[in-house]
């Protein structure tokens, strides 16, 4: 391990002061150092999208992001999405539409969907498909995930 250096960033709205060696990726920092294990390790090579977090609002692969390079920036993980005791509309839609099965890809999909709906509150089906085309799901065939995002975007139950 190279020598750790101090690192400050904002995670889920709170300031975090920690240390990280140069070779630490954000995924490891979150899971192993900060205990934010909601961010999942699926392939570790930037393919599956399970490790998606929001970096300054933009969905980003935490397994391919060096922690030291996000110094001073704002991270949202799945743990920071919902208000205390509640769920966001898109989280609620995932529950109601059965968009989770095994749930392992779910955090990544939710962060991607959240960013999509902030940027484009009324996406078409094609826009939804394009937005989630970097997240792999092996359970749902994506069908109910797409339905849930559509429902969240229109406010439909």
């Amino acid at each position: 391990m190279s020598s750790p250096a101090p690192l400050k960033l904002t995670i889920n709205g709170l300031p975090v002061a920690t240390v990280a060696p140069a070779e630490r990726v954000l995924l490891d920092l979150l899971r192993d150092d900060l205990g934010l294990v909601g961010t999942k390790r699926g392939c570790d090579l930037g393919t599956c999208g399970c490790c998606t977090v929001l970096l300054d609002g933009r969905p980003t692969l935490s397994c391919l992001t060096l922690a030291r390079l996000v110094e001073g920036r704002t991270i949202t993980t799945i743990e920071g999405l919902a208000p205390p005791g509640g769920l966001t509309p898109v989280q609620r839609a995932f529950v109601e539409h059965g968009a989770t099965q095994c749930g392992f890809c779910t955090p990544g999909f939710l962060l991607t969907a959240t960013a999509l709906l902030r940027e484009n509150p009324r996406p078409t089906r094609d826009e939804i498909v394009r937005a989630i085309s970097g997240n792999l799901c092996r359970c749902t065939g994506y069908t109910k995930i797409i339905e849930a995002i559509e429902a969240a975007s229109t406010g439909a139950p």
Binding site: E79, Q91, T100, G103
Partner: peptide
Amino acid sequence: RIPYVDGPLKVTGRAEYTD
């Protein structure tokens, strides 16, 4: 149509997997 009982845990990152 019964929503999965573990859905709220899975959408909040609170469902515990082995790792």
